[in-house]
Write a protein that binds this DNA or RNA. Structure first.
Length: 282
DNA sequence: CCCCAGGCGGTTG
DNA sequence: CAACCGCCTGGG
């Protein structure tokens, strides 16, 4: 991706298949918010603000050294028109075409695996505003404090930080029954039963099995973590919304394995579409 | 008071 | 294995 950088802002032209609001508002991430007309958030201890003045332009306000990171994070290096073509060729029917039209600017972010794991453990039996609150309080309490001029923000806590905090301190942040799960995941990384770097090298099925070992991680959370945290675009999370979609539009059933290597991207289009139709912005 | 929220673990038939 | 049920917490 080519861009020009000046006054703390990287400017991109000729952006396509990308909508910053759809991407940050489709439920895949929990640390990005619209503030004073700009989307802003933190990933891997980096802070950035984003603005899309027109459909094909994008501004990223961040350290120049981090621009490549954000390009990768936003998946701007991926040809989504090809992704959409592949999806269209695998699905039958009008539904997926309408869904891709509706959420045409969605991209699957490349988020940090550990942050994604904990975030989606927190997401179970929960709603997005409260998930965001819990994630922020975890960062504020146990994350590394980063001061950048006037601004103070917090990185997502490391496994060691959460382990050292202990289950009761995690529970104190209103995490409820998930405190045990968060602590279990942190313990596994600290004692070596779980190696994030090793997970990154695994194929989709092996990764899935490894994730299911973690207490509090079931099929849905494992698929979300694979998709949003490990770049496995074929992972297909089935939640209540997708179940609803499958019953409504694919009453004869949907063979997930036939949906191809971008099944998870398709899931995200369908998810966004159904929630959009339902008028649920959350 | 109820129900629900992008599930999961444990138990039961 | 499928069908339940309880679960921390906060909001409607």
């Amino acid at each position: 991706m080519k861009y020009t950088y000046s006054n703390g802002c990287a400017f991109f032209e000729n952006v396509s298949d990308f909508d910053i609001a759809q991407t940050f508002d489709c439920g895949q991430c929990f640390r990005f918010d619209l503030v004073d007309g700009y989307w802003q958030g933190i990933s891997c201890g980096r802070f950035a603000r984003f603005n899309q003045p027109s459909p094909d332009t994008l501004e990223i306000y961040a350290d120049q050294a981090d621009i490549d990171y954000w390009v990768t994070f936003l998946a701007l290096d991926t040809d989504y028109s090809a992704v959409k073509e592949d999806i269209a060729s695998k699905f039958g029917g009008q539904t997926i075409l309408s869904a891709m039209e509706c959420g045409s600017g969605i991209r699957i972010l490349r988020q940090h695996p550990w942050e994604t794991l904990i975030s989606f453990i927190i997401s179970q039996n929960n709603n997005i505003p409260r998930i965001k609150k819990i994630v922020e309080s975890l960062c504020r309490e146990f994350g590394e404090k980063i001061e950048c001029g006037e601004r103070v923000y917090y990185a997502f806590p490391t496994p060691e930080a959460l382990y050292n905090a202990g289950e009761s301190a995690i529970f104190a942040l209103k995490t409820g029954f998930r405190a045990r799960y968060i602590y279990d995941a942190a313990s596994r990384v600290v004692d070596g039963r779980l190696n994030i770097d090793a997970l990154c090298e695994m194929d989709s099925d092996t990764l899935n099995e490894a994730l299911l070992e973690i207490c509090g991680v079931g099929p849905k959370v494992a698929a979300c973590v694979s998709l949003f945290g490990f770049g496995h675009t074929e992972a297909f999370p089935i939640d209540v919304w997708v179940k609803r979609i499958m019953l409504k539009y694919y009453p004869d059933g949907l063979d997930i394995k036939s949906l191809g290597r971008y099944a998870g991207v398709a899931q995200q289009y369908l998810f966004y579409y159904e929630r959009y139709l339902g008028g649920d912005k959350n």
